[in-house]
Amino acid sequence: MGSTSAGIKDLCLTIALMALSVRKYSGFDLLIIFLSGLVLLFIVAPLLGMLLRTTPGQLFEVSGKPEVMHSIVLTLGVSFSATLVFAVAAVPFAYFLARRTFHGRRLVNGLVDLPIVIPHTAAGIAMLGFISRESVTGKAASLLGLELVGRPAGIALAMAFVSLPFLINAARDGFASVPVRYEKAALNLGASPFRVFITIALPLAWKQILSGLVLMFARGMSEFGAVVIVAYHPMVTPVLVYEWFGAYGLRYARPAAVLFMLIALAFFIVLRLLTHRRHHA
């Protein structure tokens, strides 16, 4: 046993030394590179496989189906609106969490993370109970002429519920990274706290807030579990893909899944580029 492990060690050492003599990498570097490659492959391979098994003809065909395009437009639109609407309250909330110390702050931070850790179907059930016509919220909404269950507004709430933590956490970290001195300097120059928030904290934390917005948007549009319970119809794309898979099988569902993935990816890349450019402008 001892001699075996010593033999393996020697072998590793030899390989490492050989590698070193060829390139400037240590054995540990090579190990890390190997493991990194494995992880990357694990992420890319299934997606690439799905992509490669889908012909451009299939993609073209599926994109011609009105129900597919409708669901994609609905999904992107609802997630985008949910992100913007909730940002109005979530960003100031994140600022508050970053700047104030109060009793129970850790508890509040934990509550914010709750939607990430609970099963999303459970989140959906909870949300459905929250907005159903029998609930206080549902009654209040219908008094205002707003139907929630089975409507885009309900979908938006379900998406927001599971994706809000990504925005709040990113924005809170962003605000926390802004030195308080800048804000105190602005106050000293006579600015009101609101003006300090708008002109100092927000622009200086903007990059992280924007990346939080992108994350929330991306997470919201890909949500299946919570949304399917709140609203099977109108059908968001994840639900549509699931239905086609159940009814017609893998082959039939794949092109729609690929199309949605490509459009989401395009959106994601554009937004990332935008946040990047904003920062360097």
Partner: peptide, 19 residues
């Protein structure tokens, strides 16, 4: 409140708004 005091403070590290 800070913003109500008529004092102009020049911080040691100046705190010039970087953006």
């Amino acid at each position: 409140k800070i913003q109500r005091r008529p004092f102009g403070l020049v911080f040691q590290d100046l705190a010039i708004f970087p953006h």
